[in-house]
C-alpha cells in the first residue's frame, strides 16, 4: 500500500467514524438544514408558555418563506421562520417562531389587522399530496390558524366599542342583545364570536376561496410576543376523528406540513401572506435531549480521534511498531 493510498484510507475512515458518532449520539448540527422536522418525545410541554425551556431540547427547522403569488390578493413580507415540534405520546406540539418588530394584536380600527400564523397539513382522508395553495377539491387540507387578536380576545372584550374605542359614546343601542342585529354572530360565524377563548381555529379547505371553519375545534394554541419575536404553539391529539383533519402517527414517515405568516402592520390578511414550502413533521420515539452546539458536537467526535492519532504518533516516534513487543 502506497503512502498516498494510506492517507486516503485514513481520511475516509475518519469521516465514517465521525458520521457514525453523530448518528449514535443523534446529534443534529445546529447549522445544518433538513426538510424533516422530528418531533421527539417530551412529557413536560407547557401549554401556557411557548418560551418554556423544554423547547431547548427539541429539534428545529429553519424555513425560508416567500410571498404568496398564486392568486389575488398577492403579497407577503416575512422571510424566515423557525419551526420546532415535540409530542408526548398523545398530543403533537408544533412551535413557530419568527421575528416581528411589532406586536399587532388588536383590531381596534377599520384598517387594523392582526399578526397571524398557520400550519397546513393534508387531511388524513386525502390519498394524494394536495397542492400547496389551499389544497384541491380532491385533496382537502387541514389548516390550523392562530391570530394575535384572538389571543387578546381571551383577555379583554375587544368586540365592544367601549373597549376598542374608549372615547366613543353612544346614548343607546336599540335592541342590544338581539342576535339578528349582529348577523355574523347570529349565524355562528366563529370570527364574530364575542366569547372567543381560544386563539386558534381548525379549518378545512379544498382550493383557495373555500376555507371553512371545522365543526369540532380540537386544537389548542398559545402565542407570546417577546422583544421582537413571536412564539406560537399549536397542539392537538395525534389522532383526530374529524373528517378533514390531519392525523399523526409516531414512528411513521411523517406528515407533510407547510407554514404561513401574516404581518398585521403590513395589512396582511388572507392571500397576503408569506408561505413556506412543504416540509415533513415526523413524530419519533426518541426522547427529547438538548441539542448540542456545533463545536461541542465536533469536540465529542474529534477529541477521541485526536487522542488516538496523537498516541499513535508518539508511539511511532518512540520506536514502537505493531507486532514487535
Amino acid at each position: 500500500m502506497s503512502g498516498r493510498t494510506r492517507r486516503r484510507a485514513a481520511v475516509v475512515a475518519a469521516v465514517l467514524l465521525a458520521a457514525l458518532a453523530l448518528q449514535l449520539l443523534d446529534v443534529r448540527l445546529a447549522a445544518s438544514q433538513s426538510a424533516t422536522l422530528s418531533a421527539r418525545l417530551a412529557q413536560d410541554v407547557s401549554t401556557s408558555d411557548p418560551w418554556d425551556a423544554v423547547w431547548e431540547r427539541s429539534s428545529s427547522l429553519d424555513l425560508a418563506l416567500s410571498a404568496q403569488l398564486v392568486v389575488a390578493p398577492r403579497g407577503g413580507t416575512r422571510e424566515a421562520l423557525r419551526a420546532r415540534a415535540l409530542h408526548d405520546g398523545r398530543r403533537l406540539f408544533v412551535l413557530l417562531e419568527w421575528r416581528d418588530a411589532t406586536e399587532d394584536a388588536r383590531i381596534d380600527g377599520v384598517t387594523a389587522y392582526s399578526d397571524a400564523a398557520a400550519l397546513q397539513f393534508p387531511a388524513a382522508s386525502t390519498a394524494e399530496t394536495p397542492p400547496l395553495c389551499m389544497g384541491s377539491p380532491t385533496a382537502i387540507v387541514n389548516i390550523w390558524q392562530w391570530k394575535a387578536v384572538w389571543q387578546t380576545d381571551a383577555q379583554q372584550d375587544l368586540a365592544r366599542i367601549v373597549t376598542s374605542k374608549p372615547r366613543a359614546w353612544a346614548d343607546l343601542y336599540p335592541y342590544a342583545g338581539e342576535p339578528v342585529f349582529a348577523p355574523a354572530r347570529a349565524l355562528g360565524n366563529l370570527v364574530a364570536r364575542p366569547d372567543r377563548v381560544s386563539p386558534v381555529e381548525d379549518l378545512h379547505a379544498g382550493q383557495y376561496g373555500t376555507l371553512t371553519t371545522a365543526k369540532e375545534q380540537p386544537l389548542g394554541g398559545v402565542g407570546v410576543w417577546r422583544a421582537g419575536t413571536w412564539r406560537v404553539l399549536f397542539w392537538r391529539d395525534l389522532a383526530s376523528g374529524q373528517d378533514g383533519d390531519a392525523s399523526f402517527g409516531v414512528g411513521g414517515a411523517g406528515v407533510d406540513a407547510a407554514a404561513a405568516l401574516w404581518d398585521g402592520s403590513a395589512a396582511e390578511r388572507d392571500g397576503l401572506k408569506s408561505v413556506s414550502q412543504f416540509f415533513v413533521i415526523r413524530p419519533v420515539t426518541l426522547p427529547a435531549t438538548a441539542e448540542l452546539p456545533f463545536w461541542t458536537a465536533a469536540l465529542i467526535v474529534l477529541l477521541p480521534m485526536a487522542v488516538f492519532v496523537g498516541g499513535m504518533t508518539w508511539l511511532a516516534r518512540s520506536g514502537w511498531t505493531p507486532g514487535r513487543a
Binding site: 377599520v110 368586540a159 349582529a182
Partner: peptide, 11 residues
C-alpha cells in the same frame, strides 16, 4: 362595503 368592529365582518 363597510367593516364592523364588533363582529369583525364587513357589512
Amino acid at each position: 362595503s363597510m367593516f364592523r368592529l364588533t363582529t369583525r365582518t364587513s357589512e
